[in-house]
């Protein structure tokens, strides 16, 4: 009588997901906060260093990026992030299709919020994939190739110019970045709000409301950071020297597969962290 009264037997293809159902669900929630969400905060804050270009001032974006590239064993951080994002995205996709949106009949704001969380998740996944694949892995997707360079062969700083080049060059890329970045910000802020319910941190209606204001504030700050960065990249004046250095870097990359970065002006791939190699 007390056997499982589930209406159907679980599908065998979902065996793994069902066996570790609870653990995977909670790891999915956790992975959205650490490492992915935390990284998004840092990334968007770094991007905000581009904002001074909005008012025609010099930016510190170059310095920030050089600092990140100088971190020891950066590849470990990178791979952990890729795995974290991949795990969160793969499970998120599965979970998205366990539900069926019904905002048409039940048009409450919370229901819209629920639906948007799933829509922005998928938009963010598409954006993040294209962002990493082109800028970091330097895939040439249908000619949409924006190799990211820290410096030119002569040591010209290229971080801001490369970003500006990518966003100023194509309305499609700009649209993708605007939609993608704001999807990420919404997904992160709303996810932080629902995670607090999932883990049982915010219990009462009032507590959920208070935590909602905190998440809203975080989301607004990240949105301002993002708007500042995109605006800065759009207003950034690319000099002739930078254009020349950029072209030389592209040529060098095509021939050797290496980029110039960081202080010593030594050509090296990011993976090669030791100067001896």
């Amino acid at each position: 009588m007390s056997e499982h009264a589930t209406t159907q037997s679980p599908k065998t293809s979902q065996g793994f997901l069902d066996k570790h159902h609870f653990l995977l669900r909670r790891l999915h929630s956790l992975s959205g906060i650490v490492p992915v969400g935390l990284f998004v905060c840092m990334h968007l804050f770094t991007n905000f260093q581009l904002a001074p270009a909005l008012v025609g001032k010099a930016n510190t974006f170059q310095h920030e990026v050089e600092f990140i590239h100088s971190l020891p064993a950066l590849v470990i951080i990178e791979v952990s992030l890729w795995l974290g994002i991949g795990f969160h995205a793969a499970l998120g996709l599965v979970y998205t299709f366990t539900g069926k949106a019904n905002v048409k009949c039940y048009s409450y704001m919370d229901n819209v919020r629920y639906t948007l969380q799933r829509v922005t998740g998928i938009l963010a996944l598409i954006f993040i994939f294209l962002h990493i694949a082109t800028l970091r892995w330097r895939w040439n997707l249908g000619g949409w190739f924006t190799p990211f360079f820290v410096e030119g062969p002569d040591g010209t700083p290229l971080v801001a110019a490369t970003t500006a080049h990518a966003l100023q060059g194509s309305a499609l890329v700009l649209t993708l970045y605007i939609v993608g970045v704001f999807s990420v910000v919404y997904h992160w802020a709303n996810g932080l709000w629902t995670a607090a319910i999932t883990w049982g941190l915010t219990v009462s209606v009032q507590a959920q409301k208070r935590w909602g204001y905190v998440c809203l504030a975080l989301g607004l700050v990240l949105a301002i950071f993002s708007a500042g960065a995109i605006g800065g990249a759009l207003r950034y004046p690319i000099s002739e020297k930078e254009t020349a250095a950029y072209k030389a870097s592209v040529e060098h990359y095509k021939q050797t597969g290496e980029i110039f970065h960081g202080g010593g002006h030594t050509p090296a791939t990011i993976e090669t962290t030791s100067p001896d190699q």
């Binding site: 997901l17 609870f22 539900g99 039940y106 409450y108 919370d110 629902t194 999932t198």
Partner: peptide
């Protein structure tokens, strides 16, 4: 509640409390 179909399948749309 920890089994498949348990509480973690809740998506926090919060329609339940409103209807």
């Amino acid at each position: 509640m920890m089994e498949p179909g348990g509480i973690s399948d809740c998506g926090n749309a919060q329609n339940c409390v409103k209807v």
